[in-house]
């Protein structure tokens, strides 16, 4: 299995059991995360991208459950099979989360320094009080915050500062994998740019790999090395970011790129006809076929399997090839 990847996800399935039926939020997703890379994962709301990000750390909440697949973390093994203790040990230490909307993930009645100390003390209890204070200060400096921020409460900080605190906490134990779930979705453009620059510099300094989940194609184009596109719980395409934008293969990827307005040229805005399916009633065959302009005979009955071609993976009947 080991192709040098830090994290290898194979055929991951996360289902929600609801009264109305089984929702297949993540339905057979496979990819690997290489050392030091920034992998972007885009999808519309309901595509399963956030469910997947959380499930990688087994942070999904019931009624979501892992229905199959494995997530191999380099040097640890299958995260899906770890017991509670093993899971506790790798979280934050090896596999860290920078959550969506830091405003809601910080404890409102705890000072920032205590929230940072919490994780460090749990995993590495040996530090003296002075050592710990020094580490916290260094960690705040690393994300571009003054030492005095440590003494503040979350409500005293701006949105961008809170998101930096979340990055500081997430990277406090130098994890090898950072999972960032829409890390800047509620921020203004200038602040977003600053926070992403911070995330990038911390990640490069640590040599960590990062999986960035989001919906903003522009942000992904600027930050990711490789990029994956999710649709209805499936990863439909995965390619180096430059290839994906200049030569998208999957019709959904192509339409998604065309629907993004740019400052380059004024043009009639394109949109993808129809609406994304609800994940209870995913269309048979390729889930995108009812909206796909290139759909042909096998698309409404056979699920396209991922095929590999020149460093990219695409799941579409237009590209028959070697199974990935």
């Amino acid at each position: 299995m080991n192709n040098g990847a830090v994290l290898t996800v194979s055929d991951l399935r996360v289902y929600y059991d609801t009264d109305a039926g089984t929702v297949k939020a993540v339905d057979g997703v496979s990819f690997d995360l290489r050392p030091g890379e920034r992998l972007g994962l885009v999808g519309e709301s309901g595509s399963g991208k956030s469910t997947m990000a959380l499930a990688l750390m087994r942070l999904h909440k019931p009624p979501a459950r892992i229905a199959g697949g494995e997530v191999l973390l380099d040097g640890v093994g299958d995260v899906m099979k770890l017991d509670d203790d093993g899971l506790r040990r790798i979280r934050l230490d090896r596999l860290a989360l920078v959550p969506q909307g830091a405003m809601n993930s910080l404890n409102p009645v705890m000072r920032i320094r205590d929230q940072l100390a919490d994780g460090i003390r749990t995993h590495e209890p040996g530090d003296t009080r002075d050592d710990l204070a020094e580490r916290i200060q260094a960690q705040l400096a690393r994300v571009g915050l003054d030492a005095e921020v440590g003494g503040k409460f979350p409500h005293e900080l701006s949105g961008g500062m809170k998101q930096r605190v979340a990055i500081a906490i997430g990277t406090s134990l130098s994890p090898s994998v950072i999972i960032a779930d829409e890390p800047t979705s509620a921020l203004d453009v200038v602040v977003q740019r600053q926070v992403m620059e911070t995330l990038r510099s911390v990640q490069e300094e640590l040599g960590a790999s990062v999986l960035i989940v989001g919906h903003d194609m522009g942000l992904m184009a600027q930050i990711a090395d490789r990029m994956g596109v999710m649709y209805a719980g499936k990863l439909v395409e995965l390619a180096p970011v430059h290839d994906l934008f200049t030569n998208p293969q999957h019709p959904y990827t192509r339409l998604l790129i065309e629907s993004v307005p740019t400052l380059m040229a004024k043009r009639a805005l394109a949109s993808i006809p129809g609406a994304p399916p609800t994940l209870i009633n995913v269309p048979p065959g390729c889930p995108f076929h009812p909206r796909c302009p290139s759909a042909f005979e096998p698309c409404d009955s056979e699920v396209p399997l991922p095929t590999a071609q020149n460093g990219r993976v695409v799941s579409c009947h237009l590209y028959p090839g070697e199974a990935a």
């Binding site: 500062m161 203004d188 453009v189 602040v191 903003d216 522009g218 934008f245």
Partner: peptide, 22 residues
């Protein structure tokens, strides 16, 4: 500061951000 959906374009210019945007 708008991230353009084209990886070959730069994102922002050096020395543009001064002070605290928030």
């Amino acid at each position: 500061s708008i991230p353009q959906p084209d990886p070959s374009l730069p994102w922002g210019a050096e020395g543009e951000i001064a002070g605290d945007p928030e």
